[in-house]
Design a protein around this nucleic acid. Structure first.
Length: 162
DNA sequence: GCCAACGTTGGC
DNA sequence: GCCAACGTTGGC
């Protein structure tokens, strides 16, 4: 999952009540489909900081609630308000994620590009603007190895995601 | 349904 | 600031 840290950072997630946040405001249909159809409770999340001098994967999170109608789409005061969204047709979807582990040495794009497995990650593809991107199990495990996270067994590695 | 114009994202 | 790569919009 991508976020501009000036908007919402991994540190913000760590500070959030219960270290949980609603991942809302996604307004791209492809990303919406991932949130609605693919993301499962317990999934690992790679938290990526974008639009900064050195973009990087900075931490791990976990999905605590699978896809549900995005509340911000129904909130007229939200900048993500969508008047088309209704009970019968939510249009937009959200998930809840929880802070898990900080990556002490963030994985920069240069580091990802230099890895035989990670060089193929979607996030490195030029022009890719998806704010939610799938990650293969192989990529997930490579990230954990590179980031030197110890307790790898506690993560669901079969369907890791970013 | 086509497609040009426009807007947005985000690395560099 | 530039620009590539989309996604969206709207006239026709």
């Amino acid at each position: 999952m991508k976020s501009e840290p000036q908007c919402f950072s991994f540190a913000d997630l760590k500070r959030a009540p219960g270290q949980i946040t609603c991942w809302d405001g996604v307004r791209n249909y492809q990303a919406r489909n991932l949130l609605r159809d693919e993301v499962r409770i317990g999934d690992g999340v790679l938290f990526y900081h974008s639009s900064i001098p050195v973009p990087a994967i900075v931490g791990l999170a976990r999905v605590m609630r699978a896809g549900y109608p995005d509340p911000s789409a129904r909130d007229p005061r939200s900048e993500h308000f969508d008047p088309r969204a209704g009970d019968e047709n939510p249009i937009w979807w959200a998930v809840d994620i929880q802070y898990d582990t900080e990556i002490v040495r963030p994985l920069t794009r240069e580091m990802l590009r230099g890895h035989p497995v990670l060089e193929k990650m979607d996030v490195l593809r030029k022009g890719n603007r998806l704010s939610v991107q799938p990650v293969t199990a192989e990529q997930w495990e490579a990230v954990l190895q590179l980031s030197q996270v110890r307790d790898q067994s506690t993560y669901q590695t079969s369907r890791g995601r970013v």
